[in-house]
Simulated scan of single mutants.
Amino acid sequence: MRLSVLDLVPVRTDQTTGDALAASVRLAQTADRLGFERYWVAEHHNMPAVAATSPPVLIAHLAAQTSSIRIGSGGVMLPNHAPLAVAEQFALLEAAHSGRIDLGIGRAPGSDPVTSYALRGAAGRDDRDVQNFPQYLDDVVALMGTAGARVVLPRDQQYVLKATPAAQTVPRLWLLGSSMYSAHLAAAKGLPYVFAHHFSGQGTAEALETYRTEFVPSDAAPEPVTFLTVNAAVAETHEEAQALMVPNLQSMARLRTGQPLRPLDLVEDALDADLSPQEQAIVDSGLARAVVGTPKDAARQVRELAAQFGVDEVMIHPVASARRGTDPTASPARETTLELLAKELV
């Protein structure tokens, strides 16, 4: 069993953005020390509870302070960016940390429509960036390759674009998704594929089966390569693990019911919160599909999840919050989640 980590760089009510980044550095170093496979950071925008807005910047920061774990994006939301900019950023990261960089790419905007418009400029006024996603994906692959991408100019002249003057190695490319669209596309392109089970938990089995059935071998992957993500909180008692997870689930409930967003609550505040029936249903659903409990119970849940979906790697999204009095520059409950799982599984 290979374990990896997904980090949205959560910001608690007792933290500044700088505190949250310091806590994520400590979490990445913990994962590195424990032998986790990879550590990915997400891209979300205009969300007070999430400090992960720029994956390449975060990856550079984390890779410089770890030694062997692979660092990557989970993922770069490609419609927000020019393919050449993404290719250059990750080619440069690969040059600086050869053999340790993953480029996970997604199609979702990672924010609300207004923020997406601001990110994309005029192109944000229509769906062209989303419609062109498969071509953008091909462009990134070509631009990072040693041959580069050829641009046809007037009078049949050709111009070669490369992300770096002399690429020696390239980041490992992954396609991310939470729908059948991404499963079909990853299979057709012959790319490794990751399903965001932590986000919705709907359609996981169907998407992974479609990906494996339709997979076309490629230079990137001669056979299907896939894993999935899952929310997790692990503690010495089930009650404590569940309490630590509640703030994250309530934050998700507020997002999905259109409530004002705010930093992640501390455990005591979350346990005192009054929820609507709709919000409570979202919290209960999140608990049901998460890995939560004591070390042995949580390890069993991870094994069962891996067996159910036929994967030999699971990416843990440690969502435990903190209690009052916790060092703002640390996330001890998230570190403990990794440590207790590693004792059972790594």
Rank of each mutant, 00 (worst) to 15 (best):
V140F: 02
F36W: 15
G148N: 00
V225L: 10
Y136H: 14
L21F: 12
T169A: 13
L264W: 10
L103V: 12
F133A: 02
I316T: 08
S285A: 12
M77H: 05
L345K: 08
R107D: 12
L173I: 14
M47W: 07
K189N: 10
L34A: 11
L228A: 08
S182W: 06
E239S: 05
L78K: 02
K296V: 12
H45D: 08
M77V: 10
T169F: 02
V5P: 03
L244P: 04
Y136E: 14
V292S: 11
V230H: 09
A253F: 02
S67T: 11
I59P: 05
E268G: 02
V86W: 08
T169M: 02
V194N: 13
L261D: 03
L176G: 03
Q15P: 11
A299F: 01
G35V: 13
G72Q: 12
V346F: 10
G18R: 14
A342F: 05
R303N: 04
A188E: 14
N80W: 07
Y159A: 05
D19M: 04
V11K: 03
E344L: 10
P113W: 07
H317E: 13
R12E: 13
F215Q: 08
T53V: 09
K296Y: 03
R303S: 06
S4Y: 02
H61M: 08
G110L: 00
Q278V: 08
Q158C: 07
V283R: 01
V141G: 03
A322R: 11
E94K: 10
A64C: 09
I316Y: 06
A163C: 04
P332D: 14
G177T: 11
D126L: 00
R254P: 01
S68V: 13
T257S: 05
R212E: 15
V314A: 10
L264G: 06
T226C: 14
G110P: 01
M245R: 00
Y181H: 10
A42E: 01
L275S: 11
L103F: 06
V292N: 04
P277C: 00
T53N: 09
Q15V: 03
P56H: 15
S111I: 04
P113T: 07
I101W: 00
S331T: 09
P48F: 06
T53M: 13
A281F: 08
F36C: 04
A108N: 12
H197I: 01
V319Y: 00
W40M: 13
Q308A: 13
I101E: 00
P55E: 09
V86S: 10
V302W: 03
L244Y: 04
A123P: 15
P318Y: 01
D312G: 04
I316L: 13
S178Y: 14
F90R: 07
L34F: 04
A23E: 02
T229E: 04
E304Q: 13
A123I: 14
V5E: 11
P79N: 13
T13M: 03
I316F: 08
E206L: 05
V25H: 12
V57D: 12
S54K: 06
S68I: 06
R262I: 09
V283A: 01
A207Q: 11
L93R: 02
D138S: 05
R303K: 14
V267K: 03
V291T: 11
H238D: 15
P332R: 00
R12N: 07
E339W: 00
P83W: 05
